[in-house]
Design a protein around this nucleic acid. Structure first.
Lengths: 165, 165
DNA sequence: GAGAGGCTACTCGGATATTCTCTGTCCGAGTAAATCTGG
DNA sequence: CCAGATTTACTCGGACAGAGAATATCCGAGTAGCCTCTC
């Protein structure tokens, strides 16, 4: 029940890309360097985001990543599902249909009670993350920065960002 | 982010033990056989429950498992944490303290915004499972049984249960 | 026949292999910019 | 000097190993009941 480490990286990366949207972005190398992450593995996470349609990666010499939607339309849940997969945490193997007192499968119209409770909990988990969009996420992250840090980051980004077209 | 398969087994096992509490229980062999599960691996799950203080396993020739508390005091969350471990799903590696614009660790008094949101979601997940105690869980499971199944199960349990000394 | 002691059979508990997913890495596909060549 | 084709350098994308955890299994520790032996 551990979330992939890549989710954290992807979330931070999207947080960086948020303020640059819609016409600016960052190459993989910058996204990795900003947080001192291994570029090759960071690529894997960005690919996952790309496949999920959260970011768009222009290929070629001047390629870089841009958010493919407004930061308001991207939620933490989207990022989690993109990187970690959207399989449910709890998978019911219907063991109630096994053994000496097995329930007939035609009697199992409603899901197993245990599975139902886990599913409900998971829905609440997802709902909680669904509420956090990239815009509000960024507001929170930035408010934690010291004025010096904020200026440093802004400078660094302006040096490394790239523009579409 | 997948929950251990053993959690399902453990939950069903506790569900069987609930109505037998406080003076009756079932040996591992019965718990495994009832749902046609591999006994050796089922043992692992019961050991985890035992270590967490949810069940008590009497050793020796006539040993068997009994709930160690009232079914009302045991929640789905307890079972989940016992079998799956109580590590948080999302672990923040503080990558904000890395890289060219790293935040100084003394500035990081409040947790990283991203981690905070995941933590909040996880609290809601746990809270949802915390509400389900074994008694209400059993009520749900039993209500899904057909009358025939219910009788079969009752008979089988009365044949296989064991009573404290 | 009764009691005590020892033995056996059966149970739980922890330590041990095996499989699978996550983690980490590499090389190929693709494109924009720079270069070169001919006019 | 300029336009166009070509080369080049740099980027993302998917395929490929290694590590760690989950899965599955086995053997040892422990106890209740049974058997035997003795009185």
């Amino acid at each position: 029940m551990k979330i992939n480490k890549g989710v954290e990286w992807a979330a931070h990366a999207c947080s960086l890309l948020g303020p640059l949207w819609p016409d600016k972005g960052l190459p993989l190398s910058a996204l990795a360097e900003f947080h001192e992450l291994p570029e090759a593995y960071m690529a894997k996470q960005m690919q996952a985001l790309s496949r999920a349609g959260i970011v768009k990666g222009g290929r070629g010499r001047n390629g870089f990543y841009v958010l493919s939607k407004s930061p308001k339309e991207i939620t933490l849940l989207d990022i989690l599902l993109a990187v970690d997969g959207n399989e449910p945490m709890f998978v019911c193997t219907e063991i109630r249909q096994n053994g000496p007192c097995a329930q007939a499968s035609e009697d199992c119209t409603s899901p197993c009670g245990i599975a139902a409770h886990f599913a409900r909990a998971e829905r609440q988990y997802r709902a909680s993350l669904e509420k956090i969009d990239l815009e509000s996420l960024n507001a929170g992250v930035i408010s934690d920065l010291s004025p010096d840090n904020l200026r440093d980051a802004a400078d660094w980004l302006s040096e490394n960002h790239r523009t579409l077209g």
